[in-house]
């Protein structure tokens, strides 16, 4: 049985100026499944996620999200996309709770104190809920950003390095949250620098190498790709 993909890209390419960042990417994401895009710095993973989220426009090719063109997503579709970027997208002078409340209101999801508390509790920040984000460490910011991305009840979740800056506790917490999202039927795409293992979750891994999407483990076939892991 082949379900309709949540996200589908057709011959997607992206260049910044003259520099190609993504080349001929064909990708499908399905509801209730998680994919990991593996690649080194500058491989194009983040750019790919941003294009899938409709934040950046492809130079060539087409991207459909929930059956719509990613450049003209309806309100309904945008409401169902959660994204974690490498920037936190949090207001430093608001408290953790105020940030959560703010985004919940924007997305029209329950933003009662109880609902916000539940999210803060899940990411282990309830004790510092009323402290300003400015005083947070990078890891705490990452936890709060995860809550921000997931509280919108997404059907498409785009996570750029979800485990960055997290302590082992945080990694376990984040994997649990991601698994819960997949189980409720959300399509998840995340990026990582190397192979990932999440307990109880089957991951489809592919590599992004020099702007191309290849099955994981086959990226070295081209020979030269491997030699530039830290570009």
């Amino acid at each position: 049985m082949m379900a309709t993909p949540v996200v589908e890209t057709h011959a997607l390419s992206k260049s910044f100026g003259e520099t190609p960042v993504l080349r001929d990417v064909n990708l499908k994401l399905f509801a209730g499944r998680a994919a990991v895009l593996i690649g080194g710095n500058g491989a194009g993973k983040s750019t790919l996620l941003r294009i899938l989220g409709g934040l950046s426009r492809p130079s060539a090719g087409r991207v459909t999200v929930f059956g719509e063109d990613s450049l003209s997503l309806s309100h309904q579709s945008r409401r169902r996309i959660g994204m974690l970027s490498h920037q936190s997208w949090l207001y430093p002078n608001l408290t953790a709770r105020e940030n959560i409340e703010f985004y919940a209101t924007l997305y029209g999801v329950p933003h009662s104190q109880a609902a916000c508390d539940r999210w803060l509790d899940q990411v282990g920040l309830l004790a510092v809920a009323d402290e300003r984000v400015r005083s947070f460490s990078r890891g705490m910011e990452q936890r709060l950003s995860l809550a921000r991305a997931m509280l919108v009840e997404p059907m498409l979740l785009l996570l750029d390095e979800p485990f960055a800056a997290l302590d082992p506790d945080g990694v376990a917490m984040a994997s649990g949250l991601i698994r819960a999202q997949v189980e409720r039927g959300c399509a998840v795409a995340m990026t990582a620098h190397g192979a990932l293992q999440l307990d109880g979750l089957e991951l489809e891994a592919c590599s992004v190498a020099r702007g191309r999407l290849v099955p994981y483990g086959e990226e070295s076939r081209g020979g030269r790709v491997r030699s530039m892991p830290g570009r």
Partner: peptide, 18 residues
Amino acid sequence: LSENENGCIRALAMSPVD
């Protein structure tokens, strides 16, 4: 400035808000 500091403007641009 407050929108640019942590890239919040992108979150707003992605959000369902008109």
